[in-house]
Computed example of a mutant assay.
Amino acid sequence: MPRISYVNGQYVTHSEAAVHIEDRGYQFADGVYEVCEIRHGYIVDITRHLDRLHRSLSELRIAAPMSRAAMVHVIRETVRRNKVKNGLFYMQVTRGVARRDHVFPAEGTKPSIVITAKSTDASVIAKKNANGIKAVTVSDNRWDRVDIKTVGLLPNVMARQQAKEAGAQEAIYVDRDGFVTEGAATNVWFVDADGTLVTRPAEHGILKGITRTTLLDVGAKLGLKVAERKFTVAEMLAAREVFITAATSICFPVVSIDGQTIANGHPGSVSQNIREAFFDVAEKIAI
């Protein structure tokens, strides 16, 4: 069965899906996106994802391409047409198609929207959870508004490539003051010597991850002590556990950073407990 994508009002074969060459997402990375997990036939945390999407659109002064109800309908239909039970959907909204010019196009220019869905291999995720992943640290060279989930991801691409070439699976950004910000595509957490779960505040300098937000709810349910504060690379390297979170992976344990083993080099119990409790707390809607 061929994959199906939604592009500006039409469901089309994925291999033939296309936008105009003067779409501002292509020309300027003038757009935003969301990625949301599908698990056992349910879409996870869609309300928070759509809340963040509309915040991103508002911050960039891009009009919503349709009502929220219509958007949920199209997402569900795209997922159904691709027969995805476990996987993800990707949604991208740009400022639309217009003659190339840095300033905004004329008022009334219609935003572009693309939605795709695909299945993922659960065994790959299970292996990373069982073995843990490796990470490297990199200097944070991104623009200041990383709180907006834009499609301008070139620094993230370069960071992930640097990680790959070092035999790692994630790059962890460090700001000019020596504090950890976040991963190239994840939020970063660690468990300190006292058992406190630590992550950077999301007011500035990082994306307010949806999985991160739900995980705070999970931590409360499990009775974990959680601290949102800045932390250094040295603190992270000395931790009992380090893990990263994202919608497509939930919670991956990190067992090595810059070649240095974290704790005993094996995934820890806190990340495992969080992962096991996550879907009991997260919002789920049927496809």
Rank of each mutant, 00 (worst) to 15 (best):
N156K: 07
H204N: 12
Q162L: 13
A70I: 07
A98R: 02
A117Q: 06
T214L: 00
V233S: 07
A185S: 13
T211V: 10
E59Y: 13
P253V: 04
S269L: 11
R68Q: 14
K128G: 10
A220F: 07
I115D: 04
V191L: 15
V84Q: 04
V157R: 05
E59K: 15
Y90M: 03
H49A: 03
A282N: 06
G25K: 10
A64P: 13
A135S: 07
R55N: 11
V114S: 00
E22R: 05
V242S: 02
V218S: 10
F179I: 05
D217R: 14
P155V: 12
S112R: 03
V242P: 04
P155M: 11
A70D: 15
S256Q: 15
E241Q: 09
T47H: 13
I75H: 04
I38V: 15
S56E: 05
A247V: 06
V79G: 03
L57N: 04
L237Q: 11
V254H: 04
G25L: 07
R240Q: 15
V138A: 08
G223Y: 11
G265Q: 08
A247L: 02
I133Q: 02
V180W: 05
H204G: 00
P253K: 04
F231P: 09
G25H: 09
P267L: 06
E203N: 14
I250H: 04
A238V: 03
E276M: 05
E276A: 15
S269I: 14
A282I: 06
I125T: 14
G152V: 01
K83H: 15
I148L: 06
K284S: 09
T248E: 08
T232V: 07
Q27V: 15
H54I: 01
G268K: 02
I21M: 09
E22K: 05
S119C: 06
K118S: 14
A117Y: 08
I46N: 00
A98N: 04
K110L: 08
Y26A: 03
F231A: 04
H14Q: 12
I257D: 01
D51A: 03
A277P: 05
N8M: 00
R39C: 05
G31T: 06
A171P: 09
Q10F: 05
V12P: 01
Y11C: 04
H14N: 13
L53I: 10
M236A: 09
A277T: 15
V12H: 03
S56C: 14
F243I: 06
I274K: 01
R160G: 02
H73F: 12
M236W: 05
L53K: 06
A168H: 09
N8C: 02
V84K: 02
A106Q: 13
A18Q: 14
V79A: 05
R48M: 11
G223K: 10
V198Y: 01
D280S: 12
E283K: 06
G195E: 05
E37N: 11
